[in-house]
Design a protein around this nucleic acid. Structure first.
Lengths: 250, 250
DNA sequence: CGTCGAGTTGATTCCTATCAATTGAGGTGG
DNA sequence: CCACCTCAATTGATAGGAATCAACTCGACG
């Protein structure tokens, strides 16, 4: 599951090291807003890049917490399993997003993180990160913003799960993906779903059949085109209105 | 809504100031694990205590973010309102818990915080708190734990809303309250609900009628006694099993 | 060509929402 | 002290949305 790292040459160690300054995600990710000097210091502590194959676990529930992970490439899902064995996907993460923050409170991971496609992350040893916080207030401040953002993200999922109808949930899901791809410089109207219908359903508190029906319905309403996992959003205004909970005459 | 603070004598200023070291919540709240010296430094920056009457707003959505608040006395609810006007209660908070962490990411509050009864909080100016972080790693670490804990709390609500049946949700809600009262040294089996049936329903993604029916059902099953807002839990093992999603023959 | 898994579509069931009526508690004022 | 009002909560009847159960399609792959 892990890539081989046995006795690498200096060169290959350097190659394996992540470098924030040359990473295309550095204006989204942890080093956001850092000067060159600070970014170098952050680079110093960041461990190797780690490749995670499709369906591979980045970490599992109850694993001891040592690293945060910044996604460099690919997509992940995080999911919780309760005592009854039911799983709930708590989020889909993409490049520039941070994984593992939920583990800080107990020093153990509270969920599984699984790659949705072949992916790559930067290991960030949390203890060393904490050492930097003392002298890098900008870094600390952005770290707090990222944790806070995770809190607000989860709150909006609570709103979605607690108050919205299936149709509204799914519209909100699509609009959210679109906006995140847009932020990353990708098309916000044409993209590949990295997750299965089952994953989407689980995340949205619906069944796979419901997701399938919603896709068909939206297709018939000419809100989108679907081809397997490729999605083209044709009517963002209506989708946004649906996601916001405004009445839409169909 | 605010208590009078006009030209107070030195003595009354001191009285208005919160003091972590004498607060009964200091082993749960932000100063957890601090030495006497550090706790004094934290005390220095903590602003006045603020009283919030029942149904009063501690802050509102979109208010600019300046303070975190530690609950000294009473109970709060936090709720989001979406564009469609629907509200979702995202949590009920009690003594020793921190309010406002979701505002760090955008410098504006993302939800309303409303007192469920006459309550009292300590104002913690976030900018000054950040200044302390540089030299108080213990404080910083515990702050991170508290944020992380909020993330995991919300994840378990996502599990609840996404996967659980009404009965299971309500059992989980009761068990969660019981455990938090237990942590605070109160009875875990006999307590007052501070929130209305409507609030409970909103939080759990159910209607007020469903909550009422569940209470009646649980009462009939002799899992609990209810008298208005007073609850007595009679069969914790069964309630816990229900919350965990284990089959319970009723 | 057959198998396997993912996804779609249809028929039916069931849980919870909705609608409606009633009860009860707390507060006010005559 | 009691009548009255109001709001919260309970209980019942019905409706509706999504789950469940089931059959089928499609594409990938050996």
């Amino acid at each position: 599951m892990l890539e081989k790292t046995s006795s690498p040459s200096d060169l290959s160690v350097k190659a394996l090291r992540a470098s924030c300054s040359t990473c295309s995600m550095h204006q989204l990710c942890l080093p956001m807003g850092l000067g060159e000097n600070d970014m170098d210091r952050l680079d110093q502590i960041i461990g190797r890049r780690r490749k995670v194959p499709r369906d591979g676990h980045l970490y599992r529930m109850n694993d001891p917490f040592t690293n945060l992970y910044a996604i460099r490439l690919g997509h992940f899902k995080t999911c919780q399993i309760n005592a009854g064995g039911e799983q709930q996907i708590t989020g889909f993460q993409m490049t520039g997003e941070l994984l593992g923050m939920d583990a800080i409170s107990t020093d153990r991971h509270h969920c599984d993180a699984i790659a949705l496609e072949d992916s790559e992350v930067c290991e960030i040893p949390f203890q060393r990160l904490e050492e930097l916080f003392g002298t890098m207030p900008t870094l600390l401040r952005h770290f707090h913003r990222m944790m806070s953002q995770e809190i607000t993200r989860e709150q909006s999922v609570m709103l979605l799960l607690g108050n919205m109808r299936a149709e509204q949930r799914f519209a909100a899901f699509l609009v959210n993906l679109a906006s995140r791809y847009n932020t990353r410089g990708y098309s916000s109207t044409s993209f590949q779903l990295r997750m299965s219908r089952e994953d989407i359903g689980n995340y949205l508190g619906l069944t796979i059949e419901s997701i399938s029906r919603l896709l068909s319905k939206f297709k018939k309403q000419e809100l989108l085109k679907v081809n397997n996992r490729h999605i083209e959003l044709l009517d963002m205004p209506t989708l946004k209105a649906m996601a916001a909970g405004n009445e839409v005459c169909g």
